[in-house]
Computed example of a mutant assay.
Amino acid sequence: MAPKTDLYHVIHKVPSGDTPYVRAKHLQLVDKDPEGAMELFKMAIESGDRVDSALKDMAVVMKQQDRAEEGIEAINTFRCRCSKQAQESLDNVLIDLYKKCGRIEEQIELLKQKLRMIYLGEAFNGKPTKTARSHGKKFQVSIKQETSRILGNLGWAYMQRMNYMAAEIVYRKAQLIDPDPNKSCNLGFCLLKQGKFQEARSVLRAITNSRSADCKSISRAEELLREIETEAPGLEDTEELIFQGFESFDNWILNSNELRPRRLPIFEEIMPCRDQVAW
């Protein structure tokens, strides 16, 4: 049977010891004192005590306390003290902070930077998967899943700028890599906003007809379909698949004469030259 002290740390999910970082986690998770925790996280960073975790945790607490701008400043100031392995994780926190502050341009640039790393094989520190944590549980994330997740965030950022053409192409690529109903809804919304009612309806009906789509996605798809009926009543029905005939994203985005002039520039900044690096 584990000693009581060990059980205490397991129950409260705090590390053992008496260092600034350990005391900060205790204030954060047990005493619910975010201000005190932030002070001790900073002390831990300055003293070299678990700097990677201390900086990330401090930035997360700052976001929770509506001090996201301070969190951005903290990461930009102290990330040079962190290990190479911690940089991707810090970027993920930074993206959330940019989103919280409405700093869309910085969010977009950082998301593009993360995509570049994937294309060049530098993501996950060169490994095919990484271990992630959510609600206290660990799970494996593949490069494919991470790429789709980042593209989904990039599409959402473009939507906030009302750049629906850019968002459309991003969501199309995300769906080819790792489709999910939520991204399909966003793709349908972008198509609707551009007046592409036939394509939008095909995307949205695929969601409502799906047995695996969640209730929230189906409800949103139905709402968008009603909006299409209002905007374009009597639209001719079609069962044509939007991606029919496209075996891969390369064939679609790089070889399509119709799409290339209008949409390729969105990815020219994040895709390596085709002659140098294969997708």
Rank of each mutant, 00 (worst) to 15 (best):
V93K: 00
K99A: 15
R81I: 10
K138V: 04
K127S: 10
K137L: 13
S47C: 01
V51N: 03
R116M: 03
I108W: 04
G126C: 06
A86I: 04
V93P: 01
D52M: 07
Q107M: 13
R103F: 08
S83F: 02
D49H: 02
E122Y: 02
Q140D: 11
E69T: 08
C101W: 13
S89M: 15
A54Q: 02
K137H: 14
T147F: 06
H135S: 15
F78P: 09
E106H: 08
R103G: 12
G136T: 04
L94N: 03
N76V: 05
L40Y: 02
Q140C: 08
S53W: 12
A59W: 04
D96G: 08
G102Y: 00
F41S: 02
D52Y: 07
F124N: 00
G121F: 02
K144D: 05
A59G: 09
I118N: 07
S53M: 12
Y98R: 05
S134R: 13
D66L: 10
G71M: 00
A59H: 13
C80S: 14
A68I: 01
L40C: 00
I75R: 05
Y119G: 11
D52R: 01
A132P: 07
Y98F: 14
K56Y: 11
S89P: 11
E46A: 08
G71W: 01
Y119H: 12
Q65A: 05
I104L: 12
D52H: 06
I45M: 02
S148R: 05
V93R: 01
K127H: 09
F41I: 00
K56M: 13
A44V: 07
D66R: 13
T131V: 10
E70M: 06
S83V: 03
Q65W: 07
R79Q: 13
L120E: 14
D49K: 01
F139Q: 10
A123P: 04
E73C: 15
A54S: 05
K138L: 08
Q107Y: 09
M43P: 06
A54L: 02
K144R: 11
E146K: 09
Q113Y: 08
D57Y: 11
M58K: 06
E122M: 02
L90K: 03
S47P: 03
D96F: 13
E122T: 00
S47H: 02
G126Y: 05
M117A: 10
R67L: 10
K112I: 11
R79T: 14
Q140V: 08
G48P: 05
E105Q: 15
G71Y: 02
G136F: 07
G126S: 07
I72A: 06
C101D: 11
K42D: 14
D52A: 05
S89F: 14
K99C: 13
I104Y: 12
S89D: 14
H135L: 15
M58P: 03
M62V: 03
D96I: 06
A86L: 06
V61G: 04
K56I: 12
T77D: 08
E122Q: 04
Y119Q: 12
Q65S: 14
R103I: 11
K137Y: 14
H135M: 11
Q113L: 10
A59C: 13
I108T: 08
F124Y: 01
K130R: 03
K100L: 05
E46D: 12
L40D: 01
A44R: 05
N92P: 10
A59N: 11
T77M: 07
D91W: 03
I45R: 04
R133I: 15
